[in-house]
Nucleic acid binder design. Structure first.
Lengths: 112, 112
DNA sequence: CGGCATATATAGCGTTGCTACCTATAGCAA
DNA sequence: TTGCTATAGGTAGCAACGCTATATATGCCG
């Protein structure tokens, strides 16, 4: 998969990865790998800054903890994050329909 | 639709827009608008540089003409462009499946 | 003449994912 | 002990690319 294909769609996937409970960055990477059947194997240099961005944006909230001698930063969805996830899902459906329609050269379904 | 959502997917759509015959930049914009039911209204500052990129990459071939006193640069798919379009379509399907699976929290279909 | 559609072009910006590198602990093998 | 791997986090700098803003030019209509 091309590197830049993800651009603009990663945030939604991160939010989705946190929907069913808090996860720390490393666990998010593993989750995405499993949920995508191994097709998504994102480098840490992608995930950690992205989580920081989401935290800055107030969509997730991070907290430090220590488990087995290792420090972790766990993230939970905020209320805004949950709302954002709903929006991102809708945007994705529209986007996927548009690109699909153009690529398959099928005219957009007429609402009439 | 978010601005950066298109990143990495525009090229494929441009190739698709040229699949059924040559078009010039302005016509490509109109085609995409119609094929997407008005959801895609791309600025000229996006289309023209993108077509230049595709030409540089050897995927399309441009030629000047004059119609009704207006100069146009029409683009045709090269053989490589046609092959690239096939590849882009396949990549899109994979990408859409991956993102869809993660966003909808459905595990990737097991090939077994 | 003014304004709009048609038609092309480029400079510069902002976002964002990636590469490469760094730190640190736990556990296991040589 | 040494070293490798997995786990866990981090940053600096780069590259790609779509967008904004701006510029040029023609045809046509009021």
């Amino acid at each position: 998969m091309k590197a830049e294909a993800l651009k603009g769609h990663l945030d939604g996937m991160l939010l989705a990865a946190l929907e069913d409970g808090p996860r720390h960055g490393y666990a998010v990477i593993e989750y995405l790998r499993e949920a995508s059947g191994g097709r998504l194997d994102l480098p840490t240099g992608t995930i950690y800054p992205a989580l920081h961005r989401l935290e800055q944006a107030g969509l997730v909230e991070g907290s430090w903890s220590v488990t087995g001698g290792r420090r972790r930063r766990s993230y939970v969805l905020t209320r805004a994050g949950r709302q954002a996830l709903v929006g991102r899902r809708q945007e994705w459906r529209t986007f996927a329909s548009v690109v699909g329609a153009v690529l398959e050269a099928k005219p957009w379904p007429n609402p009439a």
